[in-house]
Amino acid sequence: MASGTLTSTEYIRHHLSNATFGRHADGSWGMARSAEEAKEMGFMAVHVDSMFWSIFLAAVFLFFFTRVAKNISAGVPGKMQNFVEWIVEFVDDSVQDSFTGKNKLVGPLALTVFAWVLLMNAMDLVPVDLIPWLFDKAGIASFQKVVPSTDPNVTFAMALSIFALVLFYSVKNKGFGGFAGELTLHPFEAKNIFVKVLLIPINFFLEFVSLISKPISLALRLFGNMYAGEMIFILIALMLTAGPVIGVFGGGLQLIWAIFHILIVILQAFIFMTLTVVYLEMAHQTDH
């Protein structure tokens, strides 16, 4: 805990608030000092911690992978190269399993999504208080949410980017008419032209909901899983302050939850990647 005087509610709140930089109500720019202040900033605000950790993790990934890619050879691979190749091959296989079209973007996109989500989720396994405590010791008094995937801004940023690609490729591959037809002439079909026109609004409503639900479910699934996981870590961490017996019990729970969370971390990254590929595959299918 940052300080012993915090109540449980304050503690949880502290951990679930982002370090927000934005415009205060009085017009000056600066860091938000409370959750309420952050909320008041509205849209013109940036979550500094989400930005920092997500870019930092992307940089870590790119540092290792480009270093290997630069010195890569088709001969006998070294340990590092082997590891990198293993991950790339795993992603490539997953892509080839579900993506049948020809698109040079899908492979690297899937790898980026998988690696980034995995690394961001893995930040969950860092003890909840460690990094805020280090920041506190370093004299930077601010909120710190170190798991970027518990910030809906991050998950929605990815999901909406992928959705934009889905829309782009849908129109590109099916034509505007084809895509519109897909949205309006299914699932209810009719031979009679009058009935067909009558069915368009119904079909459009159904198809539009299913289309829109793709990015939303993609983003919220990851956000929800990681947010809930982080919340449980915080609750368990609270037990550590409630006396030695419950504290030890809480330590055991922490370990069990962390081990279980390894599965969720990898699974969510894999699901996000697979769904990305599947959505793009659907955008490339011309025979519907």
Binding site: V46, P108, F156
Partner: peptide, 30 residues
Amino acid sequence: MNINLTLLLEMIVFAIFVWFTMKFVWGPIV
């Protein structure tokens, strides 16, 4: 839990990240 400018910035970061991976990681390794 606030949706704000972070969303747009993260989208830009994501686009750059994908481009970088495509150019310097995926291409050579594959």
